[in-house]
Design a protein around this nucleic acid. Structure first.
Lengths: 234, 234
DNA sequence: ATTGGCAGATTGTCAGATAAACTTGATTCA
DNA sequence: TGAATCAAGTTTATCTGACAATCTGCCAAT
């Protein structure tokens, strides 16, 4: 309600007007919009104020701007919308236990899909194993983390459930500090777990793969200072 | 892919940096941010370029700006996200199979956590049943959809895995048109499914609850024109 | 203790400008 | 004749400098 007292900003008004223009004209992704100069003149405002509006819409991909070409109607991509979700309070305030639990839900949840697609497309297994082989030769933490992220992302990608890829990418940002606290002595256990997960999937042992993956992700809980890991009851 | 060729705009870079700052500083809604002038100086850019970033974030409620006071952390307004992108043709093109599959992964994935917490906190069940009772007296589609969203969100909230709430909010934006295509004759089946899920959880029958929930969510596939529902193999 | 005024701080918006990227048309070359 | 190259014009990206509107804190008056 505090919000409704506030005076509307030009940029907000203009953004809404632009959106309405797109709707009214029945425009589709790729269609040209008037130039910044023309729009600013139509609205009777400065070009910079107009840009504040177009940038707002551009943040979600609704409008795209290219020098020399102008403004076009953009396209909505789940990953772009999801990028915004990193500001969601439920993520910003997430405690480590929730982050771990969330990863477990997503990553074990995709395993039936991965296993099915692995049978149809053997290159999935090759790619996972190949990434893991790279992990084995990682010689510094940055590289190890990068490849660990790649392995897990590839696992989710292999499910075909693209929204979950975007979600996992967001989690990666918040989860990074846990990955970076992994001791070198623990790398080989992680790499071994990856291999075991892939083999269990390959053999269609989905429950076993889930259990391995859950244990692998939950291993991060051991390194959380002043935290009581929430024991899972089954 | 067109997007990745394009040079990153200052405003996009800065928006991401601001996000990282908010995360790194552990800031909550209402907390003060550095002023526009200070941020511009820190990033070594002009104040107007900095404003393009803050306006983008402000459009969605993530940052709030008040003359004389400065910038504060806001919270993302998902209803605004819905309003802004809800018109877009790309929402009509969102892949139903992925959306349904993703919802199934997330919502069935939280059930063990919900069941556990239900035993500790009986008000969870009361709240779910109460929302479903409201669903029973919904007399128009808008209300029905709103309450259906609320029921499913409450289910995820009840797990305590807060990041999944954020992700579910994104899915809700893309999934809305499917909910809105539910015929009134089908409402009671949905409401009944909700009740059965809650009771199965209450009785600790997690596998049964998962199956009911999966079936409930996948029921949307039946209404999707020109789509072949991907049969799940178990 | 409360209210009003003022100065300083901060955002909102503008004008004018240059740099970078893109498009189009003309010219040259094989 | 078709393809490649180049120059000019167009458009966005970003900047400097400036003024207007709003807010906050402090001080004086009641």
């Amino acid at each position: 309600m505090i919000e409704s007292i506030g005076k509307a900003r030009l940029s907000d008004i203009v953004a809404d007007r632009l959106k309405q223009y797109i709707v009214d004209e029945g425009l589709s992704p790729g269609d040209r919009l008037p130039t910044e100069g023309q729009l600013a003149a139509s609205f009777g405002i400065s070009r910079l104020s107009l840009r504040e509006a177009t940038k707002s819409l551009g943040f979600l991909g609704i409008v795209e701007a290219r020098p020399g070409r102008g403004l076009t109607v953009g396209s909505i991509k789940m990953d772009r919308v999801t990028r915004v979700i990193g500001f969601h309070p439920d993520l910003l305030n997430a405690d480590p236990v929730s982050l771990i639990g969330t990863r477990v839900v997503i990553e074990t949840g995709v395993l039936p899909h991965v296993a099915r697609r692995m049978r149809e497309d053997p290159s999935i297994r090759e790619r996972l194993l190949s990434t893991n082989a790279e992990l084995e030769s990682a010689d510094n933490l940055t590289r190890f983390v990068e490849l660990d992220i790649r392995f897990h992302r590839l696992l989710i990608e292999s499910s075909g459930l693209t929204p979950l890829i975007a979600f996992a990418d967001v989690l990666t940002v918040f989860f990074r500090r846990f990955r970076e606290s992994v001791k070198k002595a623990e790398w080989s256990a992680g790499i071994q777990a990856h291999n075991q997960i892939v083999e269990a999937l390959h053999e269609g042992r989905i429950d076993a793969a889930s259990e391995l993956l859950r244990t692998h992700i939950e291993s991060h809980a051991k390194r959380i200072p002043s935290n009581k890991a929430d024991k899972r009851e089954t």
